[in-house]
């Protein structure tokens, strides 16, 4: 009988856009929403991911943020989103270097 594949390691962060101005933001360990992706609080266990999901839902319900999502990041080192879409959200349009966003303060 074939063995079940081990669950893929998931490392995630919580992101959204600020309701008032649409700015891309990340939930931080300090419990705030930051525009800098490297400040995002990292969740590495199912329990931590569940906790982030609940925080996102609560912030949405409180009308602080919209378009809430828990997203994958690249394992190890500085926080970096895994998918190109999220990299662009974090760093700005790739075609306007003058509008690049900083990933850290």
């Amino acid at each position: 009988m074939a063995q079940a594949k081990p669950a893929k390691a998931e490392i995630k962060i919580l992101t959204a856009n600020r309701l008032r101005n649409g700015e891309t933001v990340y939930y931080t360990a300090a419990g705030e929403w930051s525009p800098y992706v490297t400040q995002a609080k990292v969740a590495a266990t199912p329990e931590e991911i569940e906790a982030l999901t609940k925080i996102g839902a609560a912030a949405y319900a409180a009308n602080l943020v919209v378009d809430v999502a828990v997203i994958d990041i690249v394992p190890g080192g500085e926080v970096k989103p895994a998918h190109i879409r999220e990299i662009i959200r974090a760093t700005g349009p790739t075609v306007r270097s003058d509008l690049n966003k900083s990933v850290a303060p």
Partner: peptide, 10 residues
């Protein structure tokens, strides 16, 4: 009213 939410802003 023509207002979307996109990746970086409205």
């Amino acid at each position: 009213n023509g207002l979307y939410l996109q990746l970086h802003a409205y």
